[in-house]
């Protein structure tokens, strides 16, 4: 029996790569999905998480009628780094009320990109705050929107009040090359920031 299907026995022959992830965060409409799509080797995949929450302050004695559901879309892309590593890029759900999902998303992530929209800079305060408090390395990428005023990276840094050690880079999320540079800046930052902490 075992020998009968051993020929096309699923997936025993191929090397299994390690799956790692980088989070792309930012406010609603900051360009997260655009950035993921511009560097992903596949059309970004989308899945949903349906959250069921018991109504606030009510003991759940009645079953479903006391619960409400919320559907959160989760978009992600993929970059095959080499035979050993596949990098996944996860866009965070943009709306603030989906914060509860961030903890799981961020768990085990290499780091994060915070996409800033200079027209609505305040929409990424939460993301900056979140990663700072959890000690997740991140870079701020200022997504250039047409028609938006042009700011220097230092102005953005000051406005966001991020520490000098956090790279702030300009980006165009629609451009593959630009998005790639942002990711390179992030990974470089992660590598660099791990080193001096020891010798410091």
């Amino acid at each position: 029996m075992a020998s009968a299907d051993s020929e096309n026995r699923p997936g025993t022959q191929e090397a299994i790569p390690q799956a790692v992830k980088i989070i792309v965060a930012g406010g609603f409409g900051a360009g997260k999905t655009t950035m993921v799509a511009s560097v992903s080797e596949i059309t970004p995949l989308s899945t949903e998480e349906v959250m069921t929450e018991a109504s606030q302050g009510v003991d759940d004695l009645g079953g479903v009628e006391n619960k409400t559901t919320t559907t959160v879309a989760l978009d992600f892309g993929r970059i095959t780094i080499n035979d050993d590593i596949v990098l996944y890029l996860f866009g965070t759900p943009g709306q603030d009320r989906f914060w509860f999902m961030w903890d799981e998303l961020v768990e085990g992530a290499l780091g994060a990109v915070v996409l800033a929209d200079t027209r609505r800079l305040d929409t990424c305060f939460h993301a900056v705050d979140f990663f700072e408090r959890r000690g997740v390395p991140f870079v701020v990428a200022v997504n250039r929107f047409e028609g938006a005023a042009v700011y220097e990276t230092e102005e953005v840094r000051e406005a966001l009040d991020v520490s000098a050690g956090v790279p702030v880079v300009m980006a165009d999320a629609r451009e593959r090359e630009s998005s790639k540079e942002v990711l390179v800046a992030l990974v470089t930052h992660i590598i660099d920031s791990r080193r001096p902490a020891m010798s410091g």
Binding site: Q18, T80, I81, D84, I85, L87, V187, R194
Partner: peptide, 17 residues
């Protein structure tokens, strides 16, 4: 198949990107 340390992963990701 080939578990890598975090530092090795970071360097490989950098090269790959």
């Amino acid at each position: 198949s080939r578990p890598l340390g975090r530092q090795d992963i970071l360097h490989a990701v950098l090269v790959g990107l």
